[in-house]
Design a protein around this nucleic acid. Structure first.
Ligand SMILES: [Mn+2]
Ligand SMILES: [Mn+2]
Ligand SMILES: [Mn+2]
Ligand SMILES: [Mn+2]
Lengths: 220, 220
DNA sequence: TAAATTATTTAGATTGATCTAAATATAAGA
DNA sequence: TCTTATATTTAGATCAATCTAAATAATTTA
């Protein structure tokens, strides 16, 4: 059995691989907030286990086996999040940190049962897809709100990070998955966006927030 | 924050303290299946943290603070077990090992919510009382089936261990909490019991099993 | 009570996960 | 291309949690 630490590394590499071509030691280092030397050290171990491949001084990639393991951990994480929100009534801002611990529980009975009770959900409460039992995961189609153009009408389909801080901010602004927003103006000075909300009131979001919101274009 | 390891030590000492006057290093060592030297080493650390007291070469005791922490971990463990059986439909034989990991999750929101959804249960699925938020725990009244006398009518109110192995054995014999059994005969050779079950059929249980079953006397 | 047994402590070592500092390699910029 | 900046690796250290073996204390038995 892999330690929680090792599982967190696999998950980190997997997540980074989803949005980048190349995953550098430094990326993993920043993502997990450990030193590059520590990551390097762990990569030696993961190479021995045949879960990652890496040539000296080159980026890392998960092997097929490593990717499968990572996907299974993420699957457990997202099923747990979904269960906690849908069946227990916890807010989307509270479930990520709990799932961060539950994902390491070794019990197919538990996660299969949650999956069943949820009727096999495809997405987690933050809009990310849940890998299936084979580790297959649907490729999401979105762009970041920070990339939207003036005049476009967009709908929130996911968030880049599931931190309590961001999600409580969104709660307060009444923004949730499915919320539609029209981009009225992009401030050239700080890249903040002026948005028209569903109730016709307007709202300004900083570029930091806009960089964390996954949206799709919708018809007017 | 205490590590999972430390929390498991606190829990072990607490559980042993429930059924023994004195808790020796050796008892903890056997309970957690680590060497006595390891336990000794950990006791030095727990003493520094003021969670246990121990004079050199003497038994260990939890401090008030240590006991409270232990009770909170056990509370989380038992609420989780109850939730898994009652709300998710898992069998009593499957929940202990899951709870062993869930008990370390640091989230009052999660456990308070489970407690609420369960309507504040007093006992876990194995018949053990759930400590309240102040760490108070009701003293159970029972004796082991192995201590029962010939002719007595007893009812199962709990188990000494929650291992999958024992509980699957009990499932197979149709024995669950509340099951009544009459002691027909005690074999002097191996201390096995011949029992009359509710459906009038008879059953022999080894002393090993009888030592794991908590019963109370019931009226005939 | 002396000897034997059992329990506890100490000493020294190992493993996993981490760090900082320094060395080395790669990539970017002038 | 040469220099500079950035990324990776190596070296050496620390801390938590464990071990075995040996020393010491406490308890039990004869
Ligand atoms: Mn999450
Ligand atoms: Mn995790
Ligand atoms: Mn249990
Ligand atoms: Mn545990």
């Amino acid at each position: 059995m892999a330690s929680n630490t090792i599982e967190n590394y696999l998950k980190a590499i997997y997540s980074l691989q989803q949005k980048q071509e190349k995953v550098n030691i430094t990326d993993v280092s920043k993502h997990l907030e450990v030193s590059a030397a520590t990551v390097n050290n762990m990569m030696q171990k993961l190479k021995k286990m045949k879960w990652v491949k890496q040539e000296k001084y080159q980026p890392v990639t998960l092997t097929v086996e490593g990717e499968k393991r990572a996907a299974m951990i993420i699957r457990k994480h997202r099923i747990a999040e979904m269960y906690l929100t849908e069946k227990m009534g916890l807010g989307w801002e509270n479930v990520h940190s709990i799932a961060e611990e539950m994902e390491h529980i070794d019990s197919s009975i538990l996660f299969d049962r949650m999956d069943e009770l949820l009727d096999y959900p495809k997405y987690d409460p933050h809009g990310s897809p849940i890998p299936n039992k084979d580790g297959k995961i649907v490729k999401m189609n979105f762009h970041l709100l920070s990339q939207a153009e003036t005049g476009s009408l967009v709908q929130l389909v996911g968030v880049e990070d599931s931190s309590k801080e961001l999600l409580e901010f969104l709660n307060q602004k009444m923004i949730r998955l499915g919320t539609e927003m029209k981009v009225l103006e992009i401030a050239s000075f700080d890249k903040s966006l002026l948005l028209e909300m569903e109730e016709k009131d307007t709202l300004v979001l900083s570029s930091k927030v806009c960089n964390a919101l996954r949206v799709i274009e919708v018809e007017k």
